[in-house]
Design a protein around this nucleic acid. Structure first.
Lengths: 357, 357
DNA sequence: CTGAAAGCGCTTACAG
DNA sequence: CTGAAAGCGCTTACAG
């Protein structure tokens, strides 16, 4: 054993390994790279190399290191590695709502992409609030993430400044921003337009729109949808909007409000599938036949939309892919590779089902 | 400016601040505590104290530090703090499925509890796989989390060893384990029993059970449910089980399978609300009247259960509270406070609605 | 392919 | 209330 005594007040007479009395130690109890090195009869540098890139090290050294690591149960200390290398292997992810099924799948895409490369995620819920964005950002910045992946970031003020000042690379998810920034998403506007066009093509004379939260993406869908109606010479002003957070129950309420406002309404575009499901339930309760009396369209294609009764027409969004591709882009940037395109449009697909057949 | 020159190859003649030629620097570009200290005319220790606990520092020092921090845009480097203090302010959270709405709310509870104390979460998806648990655990261990919060951790083998060896405090969520470990949850078994008893009390003669995933918690619900049936002298063997992951669509399929197996089935306990919703949709498609011909009961009380048509009887589970309380318990342990109870049973509530009225 | 030295940016443990 | 010294456990930047 050539490991020095530590953590002991017992000094065997005659043998004083800590002869330089001023040396103080603060042992953390963890096995360090130094212990692995001494056991493997190599320097700490060789252990470090063997662990990060075995090809840099001779076979015999590699084997001795592996054995020592296994015997000692060595686990590298990332805080030390981060401090020394200025690489945290952490990625900050900011989404408006982690409870929203849409972002849950996006996070899965991100996770699947970065996990293999050994990155961990710091996931933050901005709750659509700019103040919260600023808060989270500074909290995350102290962890020195190698990059940021963000959805629905306020496009003005403090947030952008903070980000720019930190010089941490950032990729936008969902929002297709200006070409001098990085982004992966699709056009909410065009998706909204496609829905409007579908309802018109199907013969709707008095379509309505119901929406909650009223975040920018929702408002873009709305703009596209309204454009389609106006292009066809239809009234686009029939809508029930609320800033309340979206839920199935809210869909029930908004559907009722819509019908109260316009009993002749014959189609409704719900800004997301939860609202559409609520609208469908409410129609069942009110005895309104879907789609004969009222066509219903949702947004996102959540799993239940395909199997409800009737099944729900919706727009399938590439949310998993948005997360995956955005993460891939970020990893490229982090590793000094310039992505070929600064803006990736993943498109969407209108899925016509029974609720508007 | 008493800040030494850095990052420059320009050496003004006569003034050589880096006279000791052997000193090499690897500047990260970040503002450091040293720069704040020199600007505030105090030592780095005073800055450190002012930032962590202002009460340890004189008012004037505090003010100068605050001003310097603001002027320089200083952001503390957590990696350095972690290395020096052996406190990472990171908490590892392992759940079976981050896409499951149940765990999403649990994570929200955890977040709300630890966020205020400045902790960040490392969230991992075990996918109900022991191998994945081991993987995630070692990955997280290198970040030296101050504690772990886990749900559905394999109760045998490697996992527990890893955890014990690391001596990182751990609290179990959902599973109420032995009293010499920490846990917050409720009795799945009793909840299952309550459902069985309810269906019997309501007059069910031929109840069935459908379930997916078949994780331990599901099997505990099943055990309680079966016990209730057997206590009442009913057959408890009518069930359709699959290891496939749960979904609304799967609920449709399992309901059909159940009816194919037993056309006289008059009630069904679905192991969760997604399955129950699918079962309800399928009944609507098949023209089966719920609850007259078939009573349906779900589990978890997800938001849609209260507003579907008919609304769905289910068990309201304290999933947010499980996360919050478990996090609270963990924080106490981390801070050296011994929680009064090692096992907190949060209970559950049977919510009877139209689908089994 | 290998290693000795220095440093990353904080906090601990002392000492005043 | 304040500060100088040492150290946390790695990796960078050199040099062989």
């Amino acid at each position: 054993m050539n490991k020095p005594n530590r953590n002991t007040s017992f000094h065997p007479p005659g043998v004083d390994t800590a002869s330089r009395a001023s040396v103080r130690r603060r042992p953390s109890g963890r096995v360090t790279i130094e212990e692995v090195a001494s056991r493997a009869q190599v320097s700490t540098m060789t252990v470090s190399r063997a662990l990060r890139d075995p090809s840099l090290v001779s076979l015999s050294a590699r084997e001795r290191v592996a054995a020592a690591v296994a015997q000692l149960g060595y686990i590298p200390n990332r805080a030390a590695a981060t401090l020394a290398s200025a690489r945290s292997k952490l990625i900050g992810v900011l989404v408006p709502s982690v409870s929203n099924a849409v972002f849950v799948e996006t996070l899965a895409g991100v996770q699947d992409c970065v996990g293999a490369a050994g990155y961990q995620l710091l996931i933050g819920n901005t709750g659509y609030s700019p103040a919260r964005q600023v808060e989270l950002l500074s909290a995350y910045l102290s962890h020195a993430p190698d990059g940021f992946l963000v959805a629905g970031i306020d496009d003005s003020n403090v947030v952008r400044q903070q980000l720019a000042a930190s010089s941490v690379p950032l990729v936008h998810m969902f929002d297709l921003v200006s070409k001098d920034e990085w982004s992966v998403g699709f056009s909410q506007r065009r998706a909204g337009f496609a829905i409007g066009a579908h309802l018109i093509g199907r013969g709707a004379r008095r379509p309505g729109f119901i929406a909650a939260q009223l975040d920018p993406r929702t408002m873009q869908r709305r703009a596209g949808y309204r454009r389609a109606l106006r292009d066809a010479g239809l009234d686009s002003d029939l809508e029930v909007l609320t800033k309340d957070p979206s839920s199935v129950g809210l869909g029930c309420r908004l559907l009722r409000d819509l019908f109260d406002a316009a009993p002749d309404c014959d189609a409704v575009f719900c800004c997301n599938d939860d609202l559409a499901l609520g609208a469908l339930f409410e129609c069942q309760r009110l005895g309104i036949d879907v789609p004969r009396e009222l066509a219903i369209v949702g947004f996102n294609d959540l799993p239940f939309a395909a199997v409800s009764c009737p099944s729900i027409t919706t727009v399938a969004t590439p949310r998993y892919e948005v997360g995956f591709q955005a993460a891939r882009m970020l990893l490229q940037i982090v590793n000094g590779i310039t992505p070929t395109k600064s803006r990736i449009d993943l498109g969407f697909e209108l899925v016509i089902r029974q609720s508007s057949a």
